[in-house]
Design a protein around this nucleic acid. Structure first.
Lengths: 142, 142
DNA sequence: GACGAATGCAACTGCTATTGTTACATACCG
DNA sequence: CGGTATGTAACAATAGCAGTTGCATTCGTC
């Protein structure tokens, strides 16, 4: 696949599910549609389940389903569920070997990047999974 | 270094330069302060020079300098100069093997991510390098 | 209870991007 | 000319991630 594949795969799958919320999908089905592997699907979707966005069931008639209404799942939920930190790296990785000017500056740069990160999340919160799903999708009986 | 090192290094260096705009710095100096390698510095700063944010001079008294006033360089300029595309991957990488429903959905997801990317750049345009530099920096005679 | 079908999970393999490093050509200034 | 800087190419080392295989577990159905 390509860059940003986790986020892309998650959005793709969720948007697909938004069309037919009651249908249960297996990771094999999802993997086929997304052009990837069932295990990869389970890895990504597992994170979404931990965040309460999806529910999964084992066994014969098992599979994946939305755990909340599609218009109640925002892109921010997905983004945060995947532990994506696009702008700012994980915090508290300051290198103590630098002089005081540098550590101050590094902290300032990190603060700025954190602000950007927060803005990004706020922006993501404005769009829901339902918004992602094509309005004129003739294949779904939503 | 860590994640987002290019952007981090660029902001760090530019913010440092914003304090003393006239001082010429060698890539060795910058590398020392940033805890990395002169060649890495030249790689990253080269991109910024291509974008017209920095100027460099070879030879004995050479080095790097701001090419524009610090308050005229925004984070968006830096971000775009580095060819960073955090949210949306490079466009037009659709896989033609999928059915029409999937390609439509993929295009929709890509469109949404592109919108987010644009929002991010707009947000970045609101902050300048001068804003990043600490206001109370006693080491700089700005 | 046995069997099939699904998730859950761990381990391993490649691939790719990025950083770090070395080496060398080039340019500028005294 | 010599010293000092950038510019650039080539390579090694690393890290993250997709992909894959294998197996345990769980649930429904026969």
């Amino acid at each position: 696949m390509k860059r940003n594949s986790r986020l892309s795969l998650a959005l793709h799958t969720l948007s697909h599910m938004a069309g037919e919320p009651h249908r249960v999908r297996t990771s094999a089905d999802i993997a086929d549609h997304a052009g990837t592997n069932p295990v990869v699907v389970r890895r990504v979707l597992g994170k979404l389940r931990e965040a309460g966005l999806l529910s999964s069931e084992k066994g014969h008639a098992g599979g994946w389903r939305l755990a909340k209404p599609a218009d109640n799942i925002t892109l921010a939920d997905v983004y945060l569920a995947l532990d994506e930190r696009l702008v700012s790296g994980s915090s508290s990785d300051v290198e103590p070997t630098l002089c005081s000017v540098e550590t101050g500056l590094q902290k300032r740069v990190a603060d700025v990047l954190n602000d950007i990160e927060l803005s990004l999340v706020e922006r993501l919160r404005e769009t829901s999974i339902k918004d992602v799903h094509p309005q004129d999708c003739g294949y779904c009986h939503s």
